[in-house]
Structures are given as structure tokens and as C-alpha cells.
Design a protein around this nucleic acid. Structure first.
Lengths: 254, 254
DNA sequence: GTTGAATTGATATATGTCAACAATTAAGTT
DNA sequence: AACTTAATTGTTGACATATATCAATTCAAC
């Protein structure tokens, strides 16, 4: 009951002060703001009528930690928008190994699979914390892509950016030693995901290892190493980066 | 001199029988056909007038083996179309290591960098054999992207596909042992690049290693292993895959 | 013959595997 | 609420191994 109230409070619209039970219907303070993230705002280029059509019929779902939102290799016709919570995007590879390629949270937009290419999902998305998200039919998205040029540009830009990220990840994961990879993971968590300094990590060590392409044992050892070197402090699930330059140096590496 | 003639002969248009000195100006049998590669044909959705505008002012350049066509981290406003020859697309990573992410040849289209995102090139393209290619101003491309919806769809599809390829590469390079990675490289060469069975490889062992994310010494050893196992035959630069199922088995791997 | 590439061998090392144990969290049961 | 048990997660150590490094030849091309 109390939990329920909290959730609503957290869903307070970014751009307005009202608290709506039916936030989903209130375009000017939900969906539009859901993506009001500076340059990354995918929907900023949509007319209100277009936004309305996109949002119409969308499904709002709540996922419990561990639940799959999108499953790899299955054809899904949804695009996911996260309203609240944290989810991991990962590829299920060979021999049961997983590779987490991205973490997504509030305001993130994930156009899963091969848009215009059969809609087979190329990765699995699963909830890390409780996730509130909207599933939008990808048909509507592709319709808008064709109708609205500015939106098309945003979407292509989004794909190009994702491409760049994957290329970077490819280099990092194949060419750096473990300390460099862990350093990158920690800096990513601090600067791109949690954006505070002692940050509380709801991920398991296995998850962190899957982000850094190593075993959990190796990850733990590197963390201890960093700790004794005075680069980080660890208290339970909370990690504090005390020497960011040091980590960056290790990231550049040798 | 003789070489010169050969080149012209090789540039014979796919869709017509004429041999043009100024093939570049002849839309119906050069640029249009340059991309007549089934579904992958990016330009098929362009009107003739649009194609004309795209092609107008394009630069046709010949690169010698080893020369750079596009250099990573430099802002380039060109998009590359290969008319003839083989080039490697690679990322220059840490400690001077390179990672070849793709080989490109006739009819391939490479929209290098972050289209609509500043045009900084995310990889280097360099000629393996002599490469004849067209450099098209990316401005024209983005113009067309906005004008022509069907073309926009093709371009997005192209990016989505590239995305999928990168994800696959990420899994292969991080989760498979060396034999699996070499098997993948060999199958890629046979089935996606040369499309004949004893195929002649103009790449060095170092290149093959950079495709498989390992040192050249390791690559050589694995090739020998495959040879003695009867999976392949090697005669100089020519490789023949004699047991494709076997290689595929190794690729799936353990 | 000289230069760069390919090959082979001996050795070093980064990283994974396996096993034991501590610490935490979850789930019942009283 | 408090206690016990089970189950998951985290940590540490000893060891195995995939892969890189280094050095020495061999081979091929100009």
C-alpha cells in the first residue's frame, strides 16, 4: 500500500507538478517528458497528434526483478520505453555465457531488434530492479518513421550512436586487460548510469562480470585490488570511486 | 597498359553490355547497378533524378594496396561505394592493436561514421587490393534521407543490420576459443566474401589474425591444426575448405 | 641478396576453473 | 517478532590452460 503510493510519487511528471493516476494518457507530462533527455530525446520531433497515435494502445507493464522484458531470438513487435527502474540488455552467447552490452533506466528507449528487418530481437532485456515500462508497437514506430522526417533522423541517429557504442565495446572487451575493463565498467556505472558518487549497485558480481567479460571470481579480485590501491571504497552494495583519474589511467592501460 | 584495359573490362556494367569510359556518368549501368545486390540494394528506392543528384559531383578514386580510404577519428563527409577491389574496415584500438570488423568489396556501401552525429569516422578503411571506389558527399545522402522515405527505410535497415553484425561479432570474439574464431573467419571468407571454394586470399596472416582477434602466430598454428585434421587445404595464398560441416561444428564449439 | 612475411618452438602470463568457505538474503516455523 | 534452515551470493586460494610473447628459422617476392 505504501509501496504503491511511492511508485505514484516517483512517476510524477518531469515537466509538470501534477500527479496523475493516468499519467499514460497525459501527453504533455508523461510520454513527451519520458524522453526529454537533451539531445537524446527521440520523440521531441513528433507533433502532438503523432505522439498521440504512437502512445495510443501502448501497454504499461511492471516487471519484477529477474523477469524478462524482451527475449532474444524471438520476434517481438514491441519497442520498450523505461519509465522507472533498471534493466540489463544482454546477449546470450555460446556455452550459456551472457554479455551485458548496456544498462537502461528511466527515459531510455530500446528499439530492440532489427527494425524493418523482421523484428527478431538481437538481445534479451531483463529487469534488475522493479521496472515500469511502456511497450509500444513497432509498427507505429515505423509508420512515424516514414511520415515524419525529423523523427526519422532521430531514429537513424539513435542507431548510429548505438553502432558507435558497440564498436567501442568491441575494442574494450577484446583489447584491454581485466583491470582496464573493470575500470571502464565502474566509470560507466558512475558517469552514465547512477551519476552520483557513492552509488548503490543493484547488480550482482556476476552481472558486473558479464559487463566486463570475465568470470565473477576475476571481477572480485580486481575490485579488491582497486580497493587496496585506494581507487575505490566498497561498503556492501555501495561503491565509491575515490580516484577517478587513477581509474581512467588504468582504463587507457597497458 | 594492359592492366589499364583489364580494369575497364572489369568495370563493364552489370546491367548492360556496353563498355563506357565514363561509366560514372551513365546512371543506368553504373551507379544504379553498383548496388543491385538483391535486398541489400540501398539505392534501388531512388528516383532517377535523385540518383543523378547523388552521383553528381561524386569523386572516383583509385587506391593502391595499403592506402587509407577513410581514417578513423577524423571527421569525413564522405560515404564510400566500392566498385572494384577489396578493402578492410578496422578499428584501431589500444596498444596499436587493430580489429578488422568487416571486409568490403564490389557493390558494398559503407556509411562510415556517425551519420547525423558529427560525421566522425568510427573506423579506418584501407585498401587490400587495388580499390576503385566512389566517394559521395554525405550531405547529399542525408538530404535524400529526408526527401525519400523508402530510401530512409533502406538506410535505417542498413544500420540495423550492421548493428546485428556487431553484436554477433562481440559474442564470437569474446566467448569462443581460438579454433572457433578461426573457423568463423574462414567460413566468412568463403561464404560472404569470395563465394568460391578454393579461394585466393589477398590478406596477410596478420590480417586474418586481426579478424579473429588473436596474434598471427596463434592463427598460423590453428590453420596448421585444421590442415592436419583434414578440414582445409592450403596452397600458398589459396585456401580450400574441404570439410565445411566440420568447421561449422568447431564454430559452434566448446 | 635483401626485405618482409610465414612458420615453428620454448617460455611466460593473463585468465579461467574448481573447490572450500564466509556472508548475505530468503523462507518457513514457532 | 524472533529463530532456524535453506538458498543464493560473495570471497579467497590453489591449480590448470588458453593464449601471448619472444626468438630463431624458413620461405617468398622484388
Amino acid at each position: 500500500m505504501r509501496e504503491e503510493l511511492n511508485v505514484k510519487a516517483d512517476l510524477k511528471c518531469v515537466g509538470c507538478v501534477k500527479l496523475h493516476d493516468d499519467c499514460e494518457k497525459t501527453l504533455d507530462c508523461c510520454c513527451k517528458n519520458c524522453f526529454k533527455d537533451g539531445e537524446l530525446n527521440l520523440l521531441k520531433s513528433l507533433e502532438n497528434s503523432e505522439l498521440e497515435s504512437l502512445v495510443e494502445g501502448k501497454q504499461q507493464i511492471i516487471y519484477k526483478p529477474g523477469e524478462n522484458i524482451i527475449k532474444q531470438n524471438i520476434s517481438s513487435t514491441y519497442v520498450v520505453c523505461i519509465r522507472k527502474g533498471l534493466a540489463k540488455v544482454y546477449v546470450e552467447g555460446v556455452k550459456g555465457k551472457s554479455l551485458i552490452v548496456r544498462l537502461v533506466g528511466q527515459h531510455d528507449f530500446i528499439s530492440g531488434g532489427d527494425l524493418f528487418n523482421g523484428n527478431v530481437q538481437q538481445f534479451t532485456i531483463s529487469a534488475v530492479t522493479e521496472v515500469h515500462c511502456c511497450l509500444i508497437s513497432s509498427n507505429k514506430l515505423t509508420q512515424l518513421f516514414i511520415q515524419n522526417n525529423r523523427f526519422a533522423v532521430e531514429l537513424l541517429r539513435n542507431h548510429a550512436r548505438q553502432n558507435t557504442n558497440l564498436l567501442n565495446k568491441l575494442v574494450v572487451l577484446t583489447q584491454k586487460y581485466m583491470p582496464g575493463r573493470v575500470a571502464d565498467t565502474l566509470l560507466y556505472l558512475k558517469n552514465n548510469i547512477f551519476r552520483t558518487n557513492p552509488f548503490s549497485v543493484p547488480l550482482t558480481r556476476q552481472d558486473l562480470a558479464d559487463m566486463s567479460n570475465m568470470t565473477k571470481e576475476s571481477l572480485v579480485r580486481i575490485l579488491q585490488q582497486f580497493k587496496t590501491s585506494g581507487l575505490i571504497k566498497i561498503r556492501g552494495n555501495s561503491i565509491e570511486i575515490t580516484n577517478e583519474n587513477g581509474l581512467q589511467e588504468i582504463s587507457k592501460n597497458g
